[in-house]
Structure formats: structure tokens, C-alpha cells
Design a protein around this nucleic acid. Structure first.
Lengths: 219, 219
DNA sequence: ATTAATTTTTAAGTAAGCTTAAAAATTTTT
DNA sequence: AAAAATTTTTAAGCTTACTTAAAAATTAAT
């Protein structure tokens, strides 16, 4: 499939995955740096191909087939990031830039070779889960609020589900960001608060925050 | 630059490199699997871009700029082949197939990282020389006829400059093929013959053959 | 509940990279 | 040196993936 189509489908997938409810052509357009008109055209074309459902003025929704394509590209992207990070010690920014190009020119065969070589990793260097060859993500992230505190388990921040500026300021101040390691030390049942450690700092978070900070367990 | 342009320039380069004197649109067309008409159009376009010289009905000749572009793509191709071969133990056919795609989506930055990682190899797994970052091939192959026989030096067959069917039958029979190791044991000055070993077989070749078998010294 | 602002869609048009078919030039054969 | 065969070029047309500008619909504001 063409690079344009793969990127289009991937953009919708990423949007949906970040719980943005209605993904309209305009959103995808600005994400991909194309005009809304081009995005509408593409949406119609991909509807005809059975990759998504398009109805005038409505949100775009990937079909199973479209999601599978997106997951295949995402898998390749994250495998490349993992490989480049491990082998060449490139920065997170650099690996992303290169993976963005390589992902479209990688055969399923090569992706499997990379995965094997790395021991079938479940996460990329950002902490994002790597789908398997069938497009399944076995490891689902959960909000901190739902985790049972266990001394020795470490987690990687996967999502900060908020649009509140102050929340992000708080996160920045405390090193709570995408890809960083944290440990959940104690759940206070009555007050619904959670004690975590991050960068050897201990913080207590109330429910407002623990419900919107998502993490992945480290394999 | 686009994939189509990179492949076009590379096809001309490879042709020239195999001493095929006149490379016309038709040759490139059949190599790339496009029509002659498309190749002619492209040739005109690349002439305007200063990548080659095009004159109606004449052979295509790369400019310095065009050759530099070709060498840049060839470098990436061969570095990928070397990396994939070493890391994933993929066959020569497989690494070629993957490199053919990856070469166009590889930044100079990443190419340099791969080269560094591999210790700046001078040859790929086929025995073809890898141009450096400036597009220079420091190691030039030479015909067997010009080599001084030295016991411990090994060579890799790089080119068989012939179109004669019988010559290729002879080569196939004796394991003389692209990428295979040989040693030059003795030059007979008067008769202009050369004794070589290949796969622990000893063969004596006359000048007709030694002048068209090209090899690279192993680093 | 209108009006205003924004977003989406339609319509027309462009550039890249192809195609086929016919015309023109070259090369080969006799 | 003509005739025949082949190759190259021209011409017209197609698809993909965009663009801008105007029309249509939706969403937000008063």
C-alpha cells in the first residue's frame, strides 16, 4: 500500500488511541500537513477500499481491516525505534525521525527478523507497546488508579490523558512523562490516593491525577 | 529526491560500471520495468536537473552531480546489505531485496551510523565496494591479469566483463562468480597465463580470461 | 433562534510518473 | 545503398496525491 495511505490510516489510529473521539478530515489533514480537501478525498477513497467508514461531516472510523493496516505500520515503526536505539544509541527524536521513513519500506519478513533479534520486545524506547505480527497488542496500559501496589514492579508512563495545562506543568516538574519509569508504592483505599516513586522521588497523587496517568508494566 | 529518480540514476550508474558503453532509454526502461517512452521523458527531466546529459538518440551519460547521487544510493544499498547479512544472517537474495527498498529512505546520518557500527567496511557481502560518505570508492577492482602473485592475498570476484555464453559456462563450472574468493598463485610472464586457486581447486587461465575477470583485494 | 465563525465538502486544476499507439530516426540485413 | 527491422521519440491520456477557492453544512456565540 502507498505511503500516503499508510500514513493516513496510522494518523487516524493514533488519534483514536489517544481517546480523541471524533477524528475528522481536518484533524488528519493538519497532522499530515495536507489540506482538508485532500484529506476528504483520501477518506472517500479509503472508504471505497474498506479501510474506514466515511460519512459526510461525520467522524472517520477505521474498519477492522484499516486498523490491522495501522497496527502493521505501527509495529514496524516501533521495531525500528527499538533496533536503532539499541544498536546505534540514537536519541528518541532521531529514532522516531528515521522510523517514520523506514516503516513504509519494511517487509513483514524483515520486521519479524528485527523482532526476533531483539527477543520480541513488548515496548519501544518510548514505552509504547509493539503489536505482534498479527496486529495484536497483548499488553494494555492501565491507569495508575487501578494498579495493585507491589514493591518490585516497575511501570512505564504510556499516556497522559488530559488537556489541562496545569496538569502537564505538574507532570513536567515531577518527571512524569511518556516513557519514564515509575513504581506504584501504595494505594490509600479510603482517600483514593496513590503513592508512587519516580526518579527516586516519592509523590502522592489524588484520584484526579491517578485516573489520567496511564502506564505499562515492564515485561 | 524521489525514488523514481534515484532508481533511474542508479540504473545508469550500474550500467556504466559494467562497461556497457551506450546506455539508452530503452536499456534503463527494461531494467526498471517501465516503457521506453517513460524512460525518455525521465531522461529529459533529469537533463534539465543537471543529473545527466541527454541528446536525442544518443547514449545517456551521468554528470558528476548525477554520479554523486547514484553513489550515495549505492552506498546505502550496500551498507544495508552488509548490516542485514551480519545481523540477521539473511541470504544474498533476501538482503538485496530489502536493501532495494530501504536505500531510498535512509538519511545520510543513519547511513553513517550503520557504517560506523560495521567498522566502515569496504565491501558488501557480494564483494562490491561500498562508496564512502563523499561518494568515493577508494578500492578499485583490477583484472587478474594485472595482479602480482602473492601467496597470502585473497581476492573477491567483482566483475565478469563478458557477454560470451561459453565464458560464463566455464566460470559456472569452476566456481568463478561474483563474490567468491580466489587467490592468484602465479603469473607466467611469457605465456601470459595465470594460475589461481578457487575453492581449493587450481586453475590456469589464459590472457583472454584473466583480462575480463575483475577482483577486489580483501581488506 | 438567528447570526457569526468555523469546518467540511465540492469543483477545478496541477505535477509526477507512468501507459499505449503512432511517427521518426537509427541500425541491421541483404 | 535500399529495404527491413528495431529503437527512440512524440503525442495523447491516465492515476495518484496533492493544491486553491468557493459553496455547503455544521458548530459556536450572542
Amino acid at each position: 500500500m502507498s505511503v500516503a495511505i499508510e500514513n493516513f490510516v496510522k494518523a487516524i489510529y493514533n488519534n483514536e488511541n489517544h481517546d480523541i473521539t471524533d477524528t475528522k478530515p481536518g484533524n488528519i489533514a493538519s497532522k499530515l500537513g495536507i489540506s482538508s480537501a485532500a484529506a476528504t478525498d483520501m477518506a472517500k477513497k479509503l472508504d471505497a477500499k474498506g479501510l474506514l467508514n466515511y460519512e459526510k461531516y461525520q467522524a472517520l472510523r477505521l474498519t477492522k481491516k484499516g486498523e490491522k493496516m495501522a497496527l502493521n505500520v505501527v509495529r514496524k515503526h516501533r521495531l525500528w525505534e527499538a533496533l536503532l536505539h539499541q544498536m546505534f544509541d540514537m536519541s528518541l527524536h532521531e529514532i522516531h525521525r528515521e522510523a517514520e521513513l523506514l516503516e513504509h519500506e519494511t517487509s513483514d519478513f524483515l520486521a519479524e527478523k528485527i523482532s526476533e533479534y531483539l527477543g520480541h520486545p513488548k515496548f519501544d524506547p518510548h514505552g509504547d507497546p509493539i503489536p505482534n505480527a498479527d496486529g495484536e497488542i497483548t499488553t494494555k496500559d492501565t491507569s495508575i488508579a487501578l494498579i495493585n501496589a507491589e514493591e518490585n514492579t516497575e511501570y512505564i508512563v504510556s499516556r497522559l490523558m488530559s488537556t489541562d495545562k496545569e496538569f502537564f506543568e505538574f507532570c513536567a516538574l515531577n518527571g512524569i512523562k511518556y516513557g519514564n519509569k515509575i513504581a506504584v508504592k501504595k494505594q490509600f483505599q479510603n482517600s483514593k490516593m496513590t503513592q508512587i516513586t519516580i526518579h527516586s522521588n516519592t509523590i502522592v497523587l489524588n484520584q484526579d491525577f491517578t485516573q489520567i496517568i496511564y502506564v505499562n508494566e515492564i515485561n
